[in-house]
Design a protein around this nucleic acid. Structure first.
Lengths: 331, 331
DNA sequence: ATAATAAATGTAAACCATTACAAATTGGAA
DNA sequence: TTCCAATTTGTAATGGTTTACATTTATTAT
């Protein structure tokens, strides 16, 4: 494969000139430029990006750490990130972790080793201190999940307020006995959603029975299983709020399995706004998160840092929207 | 950030020795090794991967070109690729194209520029000749889609045989008038599936009416729309074979919309075996592709090439499995 | 003790593009 | 024509690691 030397030789100029033709063509005389371009074409020369990376100490690559690529929620955020990255000439290194915190650390190392210029974390189960130290030295953005009491740049929605909105909707429909299917409690965002639910209930003078609150892990199957549990109660809830759409859909399946109807017998609502919610029967009432937009904003926040701006105290909070469809019986 | 020089200085050895401690510890005396390791720890030294890349002319990165990351089929294949890559210490550079052939070319360039050691194409809409030239020089693997009459290493299922299996199943159930919803015809795999369908029909002495064969683009919405079209016929089919699950699910939705029942009134079957097929009502009869396994095999095939083996004429054909569920009424 | 071999370490080139700085060329003004 | 400034081009150092080859040190056999 041809190097810049070969081009220089063929075009009878120095390597510096060749480099300039590629990076700042204005500074090279037209005649020379043409000779060089011709040589480049002739040799099918492609600059070795590794050498450039080393010399310029940047890779035009960013790492995106994702807990699970097969989760449509994350892939939508990823798409948002990608759209901006692409536009600005950055590549994405996929940091799939399968929810394993150890693998998160591996990607941090990769960043330290300069394999990438920055990192976007869609999940952050690592020790707060470690991420903060990293963020001092490298461009870091948290998206979706965040870290309590840290001032690392973050993009998310307000899960507490959003969960309240949904709960209020259920209360408006007359429900009083509401079940809650939570994601795993070691994720801040599960806790926030549950908090919003509980706050809203108590603000309306209603107690939340702990038996009605079940902890799952955001998957379809736990939604299904936990719902069966709730249905087995002596006095099952009249409505169920699931911490995400997948669990809600699992819950609906469980209800149907027992020959009951959603929303006639039991109302089910979700959280996230994935496409699947429009396909299932009945269509799922949910909180729509601006997934793509979150990705876009996260990338833009990272870009600022990549361009040398010192970004602190910048937490972008987007709106979650209540989307009423059929699964709550109000339409 | 500390360099190898700093470590060498502190440990009072040469940079070569430091390098060796990191790559072949056996060749360094224990006492020296310890001194070096201590220095590394003390300075929190992380080798600059860019320099290593340049020197060794390898990046331990591979590009995966995906037409659409939000498609669950591809993300499952991606997961398979990732599992092996991870195991062997390779990173994945995400090559999302949004089905745009131009963007495929961009990723080829990236490979030529040495940003990665190899490439796995989950989509290949480029000119055959260009890919073949590339494959001469770099490790390339095609997965899922393939290129006709090319001997680039490929992993796929036999779409013709699989489609035949499904068609036979429908015929066994007594259907004679079968509709077919195809993916876009410019994709080889759509053509293969249709071919399998047609072959099977004619082998059983049945004609395939062209009005019953509709071309879509593998999306839920075209499945829906095309199904409405078929239902509007004077003499609609008693069964519909969709070229993929998404379209099948769209078709089911359309049938339900008109107040008809699947499978009682019309049978619908799909192709792929995505998780969604188990969630919809009725559960979808389909051909299950071993998505994860395809990813695994593709990565292994690439690995062989990365390790210097000259892989030719190796086309891995996996089995698609007929999975009978409720949507065809035979259970 | 000495030679021969093996093991451990060091030296310096290589990887290739970029860029600070120096040198050469060009153009215009006096 | 001469000089100065602006433009264009070249030289060589730089980035940090790896590794072929050379050298030194340790080990074994005689």
């Amino acid at each position: 494969m041809a190097t810049i030397q070969d081009v220089a030789l063929l075009a009878k100029v120095s390597t510096a000139t060749v480099s300039r033709v590629m990076r700042q063509p204005e500074t090279v005389k037209d005649a020379t430029k043409e000779r060089v371009l011709e040589a480049i074409k002739l040799l099918d020369y492609k600059p070795n990006i590794l050498a450039r990376h080393l010399r310029r100490m940047e890779t035009r690559t960013i790492i995106v750490v994702v807990p699970d690529i097969t989760n449509p929620f994350f892939s939508e955020v990823l798409l948002g990130i990608e759209s901006i990255a692409q536009e600005k000439g950055y590549q994405l290194l996929l940091g799939n972790t399968q929810k394993d915190a150890n693998r998160e650390y591996q990607y941090l190392d990769l960043l330290k080793q300069k394999k990438a210029d920055g990192i976007i974390l869609l999940t952050a189960r690592m020790k707060k201190q470690i991420i903060e130290e990293l963020a001092e030295q490298f461009p870091v953005v948290l998206a979706c999940e965040y870290i309590e009491g840290s001032n690392i740049p973050t993009v998310s929605i307000d899960n507490i307020i959003s969960a309240k909105k949904m709960t209020e909707h259920l209360l408006r429909l007359g429900h009083q006995r509401i079940g809650y299917l939570s994601g795993s409690m070691d994720i801040i965002l599960s806790r926030d959603r549950l908090r919003g639910f509980k706050q809203c209930m108590s603000e309306h003078g209603l107690r939340t029975e702990s038996i009605l609150i079940q902890e799952g892990d955001f998957t379809y199957s736990t939604g299904y299983n936990l719902m069966l549990k709730l249905l087995a109660l002596e006095d099952p809830p009249t409505a169920v709020f699931a911490g995400n759409d997948e669990m809600a859909i699992g819950a609906i399946k469980a209800i149907k399995k027992l020959g009951l109807n959603v929303p006639k017998d039991i109302t089910v609502v979700g959280f996230d706004g994935i496409q699947l919610g429009t396909i299932v029967q009945p269509r799922l009432t949910t909180i729509v998160q601006p997934m793509f937009e979150m990705g876009v904003q996260a990338m833009q926040l990272l870009l600022k840092q990549l361009e040398g701006e010192r970004v602190t105290q910048s937490t972008i909070v987007l709106q979650g929207k209540l989307l009423v469809r059929n699964s709550c019986g109000s339409v």
